[in-house]
Design a protein around this nucleic acid. Sequence first.
DNA 1: CCACCTTTGTCCTGTGACTGGAGAAAGTCA
DNA 2: TGACTTTCTCCAGTCACAGGACAAAGGTGG
Lengths: 396, 396
Amino acid sequence: MRRMTARPANAHQARLLRLLRDGGPNSRAQLGDQIDLSRSKLAVEVDRLLETGLVVADGLAASRGGRRSHNIRLAPGLRFLGVDIGATSVDVAVTNAELEVLGHITQPMDVREGPVAVFEQVLAMAAKLKASGLAEGFDGAGIGVPGPVRFPEGVPVAPPIMPGWDGFPVREALSQELGCPVMVDNDVNLMAVGEQHAGVARSARDFLCVKIGTGIGCGIVVGGEVYRGTTGSAGDIGHIQVEPDGRQCACGNRGCLEAYFSGAALARDAEEAARDGRSPELAGRLEAAGKLSAADVAVAAAAGDGTSLDLIRDGGNRTGQVIASLVSFFNPGLVVIGGGVTGLGHTLLAALRTQVYRQSLPLATGNLPIVLGELGPAAGVIGGARLISDHLFSPA
Amino acid sequence: MRRMTARPANAHQARLLRLLRDGGPNSRAQLGDQIDLSRSKLAVEVDRLLETGLVVADGLAASRGGRRSHNIRLAPGLRFLGVDIGATSVDVAVTNAELEVLGHITQPMDVREGPVAVFEQVLAMAAKLKASGLAEGFDGAGIGVPGPVRFPEGVPVAPPIMPGWDGFPVREALSQELGCPVMVDNDVNLMAVGEQHAGVARSARDFLCVKIGTGIGCGIVVGGEVYRGTTGSAGDIGHIQVEPDGRQCACGNRGCLEAYFSGAALARDAEEAARDGRSPELAGRLEAAGKLSAADVAVAAAAGDGTSLDLIRDGGNRTGQVIASLVSFFNPGLVVIGGGVTGLGHTLLAALRTQVYRQSLPLATGNLPIVLGELGPAAGVIGGARLISDHLFSPA
DNA sequence: CCACCTTTGTCCTGTGACTGGAGAAAGTCA
DNA sequence: TGACTTTCTCCAGTCACAGGACAAAGGTGG
């Protein structure tokens, strides 16, 4: 079952592989236009890549007015696995070498069940994708987990919402099970990478990616590279204090952002409002389902429920204040909003924008787009595929 | 008067120059230990550097048990100028090629007088240093200004406290006047670079450098490099809101950090306390000098004045809250506190530490030193010298 | 003071990476 | 069909560099 995928022998080959990944099939001549190498050298490196099987010939290229060139493409059988482990669900997807999603499965799940149970589920989902004929095997996998990760080793460290995962050798264990190289990162970082690769952040070099799901986190990209901080906890903005002596937070402190706005907080506030009789709309939904989620608030808001709109605006204002601070500090070129609550859509975005544009200095906000991510739940898995492909498409 | 200082011809030479800058005189053999080059190649590059005059022979090296080697050092006549333009004062210093400060002058000044007047003063100070025999000319200058800078061009952009400087071609103008290459950056960034080169941050790769002077700013170093943001305004934390609908700030918003704690705010609060009769100590000083500054508060606090201590603690708490947010977000390996208010010393530091350690998560604060800068007013000028030397000691 | 070892500096040749030109092959366009 | 383009291949020449051989200069132990 183990696949020994070849690795590029030098930086040129790595560069070529990435060009083919990001630009699709290309002729040698077109590759030559994008890389600073002589035609002879280029031909040698392409030949070597063909020998390794990482790339294959792929018919004739479109004419550019002279002799037609043969196209080169990444091996069509290459498959990457993207895994996005959230607090309450798992996403698993297969991509080809160009990181196009060929198949995507989502399943509910509780991270608190611990790594063993979760991995069992992940492996079953991967097996299902394989069985459906989308892949014969995996050449690499990128995994996102909802907590800080010591990146080089691929090990979660002190994850607040994932008891039982602290120090678990995720990278090693999954690499063993899947029989392929694995990289592990924070789920928010993967989302940022995904939006950078295939979403709204394609042309951004320095940007923030705020993910509002069960918790709140922020991916930081500096010069096109994810910044992870000294201990891997950079972007952990959910526990920034927004209200001195405010609400009790699960982390033990008071007044954390997450205690006021996140999937979990929103659901709790909505249930409270429903029970207090402040929102018939929400009360109806509570009765029907027995509990409420952020999605219920989104639907109620879309239906014009004032209480729901207030909840979203309130949370948006609070989150906006924090983002405004981060914008002042970090001066990003773009802010992407993603995660489970993107369903709250324009109401949320409006609140965020108002706060940021009002509180940050004009120089920092002057040309600062604040937008929703465009990949939705695919961002994480695409980011995972991108992460491992970056790793594999680099000199050994 | 123009000096045409040679530039390294390739990356190896640049590397060697930096080794000599940071490690002082070295034998070829010692250089060979630090650089990944064969002895032959090394000899060739050193010879070329000797030809350019950038480095010179410097006697015999200490014995390592065999044939003694001749030392190599950077040309002893090389001189860099470090200029730190603050809101109310200018620092100008000359350094040798090893960035040791040979002479340092400070003068009061008001940036609001505009670039022309300020540069006149800076040039006079530089001339004074030259006249005292410390330099025959300058091979490069690094300038810090108290506001955002479009770094590649060396032009201030929309600086709030420097009316009249917006868009002024500082780099070009000073390069013309001084007859040498010039680099311009935010003063806070220079302080960070200074502390990184010769101060407490020597071994830090990712750290923050908070400068509390007339205003408040923060230098951000990522992977050993200064991060400046998309428009050059990264680190502008003085206008982060710490109190909704709080005090009016000069920027037009309300509740900014700078409105509560900064040299200017502290002086104002101290004068108010003196006039209200809350502090006889401060009242006495006010009567004597006609006005109060942050330094007066420092002295009064050292003398045990309760009101002054309260002011410092208050401001420290507010600033600490903001730093705590930044620590959660950025996960630095070190936080350096500097600027004019370092005289407030331990009282301030204690307040900052309390807030940060209490509000940020253990993973981020676990091994996070929060310390005062050790270079004081020299940090900025050393950072300036370092900035320009990095520029000159890189391949042309 | 001498023989021997270590370190340092210099010279020289071999190797691998790479460039760029010549020319053949394959195609387009009028 | 002929002229022009583009692409591909081959090859010789250049350049950077490594690493060995050797000489020079110093230390060390007898």
